[in-house]
Write a protein that binds this DNA or RNA. Structure first.
Lengths: 220, 220
DNA sequence: CAGTGTGAATTTCTTCACAGCG
DNA sequence: CGCTGTGAAGAAATTCACACTG
């Protein structure tokens, strides 16, 4: 259909979706690109280009239909179904993410956690069972898990990734500092707190430039 | 000195730094741009350009001196001193981040947490005191805090940001979904798990493209 | 006439390719 | 000879500006 939706565009879609949902909750039924862009932190022309690339079309003189925006963007992002995830690493961060409602609320229920420590394997954390690494195969099959979240110590993050990949998981969200080496058919995104702090540090030191979002696109 | 260090470059510096430190730990004393780029997930030419823009120069036929890399990049990022942070929101995520050693280890010790709930104010979480919002002023002055981390519910994130800004904090790391509105002299970076999952979801659904890093640059 | 949709201009970023240095 | 440093080409992303439509 589309020639392609660019990476830059994809990166902005979640912001558009959130903004549209928010405006919809305020009983608005349509928005101009100017308003929506403001809300999402982009330039109106960029927004129009982005939406056009998704084949989302507005009404001249009026704007974009909010319900349509929400449904189309959700569709493009593949959010019309639940995507159960498994969290590997039941330490502080993993536990926090499991307890944090954010995953389930947004269609990514935490099906299970995995850890190597015999002390936690077999227990439950916030109602989520903690399994041993050897259980992953069964888990993935039974629950149709497609996404893995890595919250182990950085030293074993690569192992965790290999484990996930070997069981067919093709989407990984990595919370460690380690840069993971995964096959090219696996999508891996990294959220590294140290990186964020360092970038923040740079901009504080120099005059503040305004890089509002999260950063670090890496190419191959 | 430099005409400017581009945003794209800044976003890659933490990866270069980490790679250099890692190679240094393996008793290597110099690296080629090819090797370092591989390690950091970029193209060698991009790496050379980036380093040149920091006035970091290598030796032809040999490569870059690793110690020099580490010291220069650290310097550019402003990592030669400690930057105490305050975490606003002592819920699950805030608590996890406080316990997680990652901040202190990397020069960003958590000086205090702030919460409104009388139940936690006055207690300590992992040795870190939890204060009331009204204590922020004193805290910022006494501890020279320049960075605030927001881990409140999204609904009050803007309030938290306003509070931090009003006390002179000019660097904010935001873990909520809310897009914060801050003065232009405040640097704000957002790490939103929902956003990351949605992007992951997109790439799983469509053929997998490889966007390896964290995403969503937003301009004004 | 308000606001989209988009050619064209512009800016920014990436990659090639190679001269030249250690 | 290996590898940097960089001019120049290329690709991608952003922004302008305006014709055009509901």
């Amino acid at each position: 259909m589309d020639p392609a939706i660019s990476d830059a565009t994809v990166g902005r879609l979640p912001a558009y979706l959130r903004a549209a949902i928010e405006l919809g909750a305020q009983r608005m039924s349509s928005v101009s690109s100017e308003r929506l862009a403001e809300e999402a932190g982009t330039h109106p022309a960029t927004l129009r280009r982005d939406l056009a690339s998704l084949d989302i079309t507005g009404t001249r003189g009026v704007g974009y239909d909010i319900n349509y925006l929400v449904s189309q963007i959700s569709h493009v992002l593949g959010l019309n179904q639940q995507w159960p995830v498994v969290i590997v690493g039941a330490g502080n961060l993993g536990t926090a993410l499991a307890n944090y409602g954010g995953f389930g609320e947004r269609g990514f229920p935490v099906a299970a956690m995995v850890d190597i420590s015999p002390e936690v394997v077999g227990t439950e954390i916030g109602g989520i069972p903690v399994l041993a690494p050897t259980d992953i195969g069964r888990l993935v099959e039974q629950e149709d898990i497609l996404v893995g979240v890595i919250t182990t110590p950085a030293t074993v993050a690569q192992e965790a990734a290999d484990l996930l990949v070997s069981h067919g998981i093709r989407s990984i969200l990595n919370f460690t500092t380690e840069l993971l080496d995964v096959p090219s058919d696996v999508t891996c995104r990294s959220v590294d707190i140290a990186t964020e702090l360092q970038i923040l540090s740079f901009y504080r030191q120099r005059g503040r430039a305004a890089r509002s979002g999260t950063g670090i696109p890496l190419s191959s």
